[in-house]
Design a protein around this nucleic acid. Structure first.
Lengths: 225, 225
DNA sequence: CGAAAACGGAGAGCCGAGCTCCGGTTCGTG
DNA sequence: CACGAACCGGAGCTCGGCTCTCCGTTTTCG
């Protein structure tokens, strides 16, 4: 909106001095790593240290964290959307759904920052909200197709999928430094619970509607943020 | 160990003055409510305000939060153990298991502080650790019985239950001020996923052993704590 | 009534995170 | 190579939030 050649160094106004440009790259790289490992809650000092650079340098280049985060996660967030698109392209509706759950979670498990960005609200809100709007119909489609083919239990609804992500996200956090793959175990259980077959334990509680999910994300602080 | 008649006012050394005793009760009551509603992260000021009492008074009675928490949650934590015991007494092994999951989660859903106490480590560690030691064999028994009766899938293990609690706990947090019953929906899915029936999605990741669960709880900070 | 006990809550001390500022360093141009 | 501009570094200031103390005031009770 008003930022200089700060976010896209490639074709900017006047090129940065060599050392400045070097540091800019370092910071971006460090931020990528640190966000992925430790989540969005890391301090600017953390990033600076990791980049072997002074805090001042970080602030000079990225006056606020928001910009840094947004620049970094754009691509990752897109990845999530295209995951859903690819899933819709899959032949078998059940495999599509399960594959989407599995790959989506794997993505989030590999990047703590991404997980926090997607599940919470408060950082890239604009971009993430818009991403969710694009996801919703795809997810809805995945669910409907799998139900039409008789493989997914009929009482499931699109908004249940984010909830499943939240559950698995919790497991990922919980078991992170003990066994980072335990979420797959839980996913397998959940997947079997999603199959259409008797007897079905009735889902006593009503499904959430999209606005409720939205609202839940607002009030939500996964760890620190 | 060295505390005065602070935690058990009933039969203590010399009785508190009337106003002091009244305030002590108020504080305990307020703490109970506030912990249940907002979790263990609340400040002493929060408690004092809620009790209509000055902070000083709270500190005079309960020099550290730990004591306050421990005094309050003793009973609640016992409740969890007896839940498992009652479950073991149930006739049908499957109903026992499912009922235990359901009631255990309901207890934690109704009391945010309890949930944090049980799932994390850092507050009543002594008491909670000992509680877990008592739970472990019971839970193990519940699992084995349900498997022996052919109702529970055979690849489940005792340590999977705490993980299920973690997942549901995440949902409880997430949906707290949107629809506090959504966790039941997810539980139903999970329960169906636990049934022994073909096809079973294989649990690719290995189960955690108890020490890993313990370790996971250590590194774990649900919200703030 | 008066001493002892208890109260209240302002504020001191602390901590962690965000951010600034300026003496020193590096660049690159004349 | 020399010099000004651009940039760096990181000590330290600010700020908000929390824990805990201290003492003038109030309450209890013999």
């Amino acid at each position: 909106m008003s930022s200089p050649d700060v976010t896209w160094g490639c074709g900017g106004e006047r090129p940065l001095r060599r050392d400045a440009e070097r540091n800019r790259r370092r910071i971006l790289e460090a931020a990528r790593e640190v966000f992925a490992e430790r989540g969005l809650g890391v301090t600017m000092d953390d990033i600076a240290d990791h980049a072997d650079v002074g805090v001042g340098t970080v602030y000079r280049r990225f006056p606020e964290k928001e910009a840094l985060i947004e620049a970094l996660f754009e691509e990752r967030v897109e990845e999530l959307v295209s995951l859903a698109q690819e899933a819709m392209a899959e032949d078998d509706p059940w495999d599509a759904l399960v594959g989407f759950l599995e790959r989506g979670q794997a993505l989030q498990a590999s990047n703590r920052g991404l997980k926090e960005l997607v599940l919470s609200t408060g950082y890239g809100r604009e971009r993430v909200a818009c991403m969710r709007d694009r996801m919703a119909p795809l997810v809805h489609g995945l669910v409907e197709r799998a139900q039409a083919s008789g493989q997914l239990r009929p009482d499931i609804v699109g908004t249940d999928l984010p909830l499943i992500q939240v559950m698995l996200g919790g497991i990922v956090d919980f078991t992170r430094d003990v066994d980072p793959d335990t979420w797959r175990r839980m996913l397998a259980i959940i997947v079997d619970g999603l199959r259409a077959r008797e007897p079905l334990t009735p889902l006593e509680a009503p499904a959430l509607d999209p606005s409720q999910v939205e609202q839940a994300m607002h009030g939500w602080k996964p760890l620190r943020c």
